[in-house]
Amino acid sequence: MIKFRKKVLVFLLIVLVSANVTSQNTRSNITESDKKIENKKKKKRNKKAKLPKIDLSHWKVTLPVANEKNRPYEIDPPEILDFANNEIAKPYMYIDSTKGSIVFHAMPTDSKTKNTKYTRSELREQMVPGDNNVNWTFKQGGTMKGKMQMEEVTKDSDGKYHRVIIMQIHGRLTNEQRDLIGEDDNNAPPILKIYWDKGKIRVKSKVLKNINATEPEILHEDAWDDDDGFNFEQEVGFKKFTLEVRVSEGKMLIILNNTEYKSYESIHIAKWGVFENYFKAGNYFQSRDEGAFAKVNFYELEVSH
């Protein structure tokens, strides 16, 4: 009887030890699993949002929505530095922190700038923050560099993607030139328009209708015409690409992805030296089709003079 009791006690002891080991292993396994899950959560929480490499201190933006005066809504520096918290701007200019870009979103609306039928979500350079009256000439020179990507764009009734102007150099009359030719504003033609055109990059410039024209004749917008345009060979599609625009006295150079170049150096560029200029970048959407829109990502944008 004593032997039997001893055997029962030994058996119970073995069962208890086994159960305790199993319990410890189970707890150990659960703990390891929990640790892995918790570490993943921590990594996710600690993962920093990507931000675009763009200083907006010297840019204002025009958006495809009207202000209280029924004109395109604009945000100047320093307010533009807080555009991400601007409720009016949010649908048209916002940060994509997963990509590290500013997204410029434009579509047809009734809010258009003067002398155009198209709308824009586009930056305008301001050499002096908040002031449109200080600009630069080709003699002074300048460089604009950007990294961008077409995120999304609609197609027309023929199944072709709508075009978008992504960079510009726009001309501007000084107040004296404006008064000299009797204009009511300082607007002058754009000497450079760079298009995202069905997946390729297309460049348009201006030429004088009469190369013998002199000032003040060349100050009039109708003294200038569009050139035939130039298409870069490589297709950028919906991939990231870089553009650089360099201007100096009598010369304009456009560089795509550091591999293809288009140079303008002619009597037309030389005569353009009479104008002041400013850079533009973003989404100047080239369609009035119902339901059409485009979204353009800008990852980097830098200007120097």
Rank of each mutant, 00 (worst) to 15 (best):
V236Q: 11
F241T: 09
W224N: 04
V245F: 00
E221K: 10
G237H: 10
N231P: 00
F241S: 06
K239F: 00
G237W: 10
E235I: 08
G250Q: 13
D222N: 15
E221D: 13
F241V: 11
L219S: 05
F232E: 04
H220E: 11
L219D: 07
E235A: 11
N231Q: 04
D228G: 03
A223E: 09
E221P: 00
D228K: 06
E235H: 02
E233C: 00
D227T: 02
K239S: 13
W224F: 06
D222S: 14
G229N: 07
V245L: 07
G237D: 09
E244A: 13
D227H: 01
A223P: 05
R246W: 05
F241I: 08
S248V: 11
E249D: 15
V247W: 07
L219E: 06
G237K: 08
K251N: 15
E235K: 12
D228N: 09
Q234I: 03
A223L: 02
G250S: 14
G237R: 07
D226C: 00
F238W: 08
L243S: 09
F241P: 09
D227I: 01
E233N: 12
K240N: 14
D222M: 05
N231W: 05
G237M: 10
D226E: 14
Q234N: 12
E233A: 13
A223Y: 04
Q234A: 09
F241Y: 15
E235T: 15
L219C: 03
G229I: 01
G229A: 06
H220P: 00
N231S: 11
V247G: 13
F232T: 03
V247L: 12
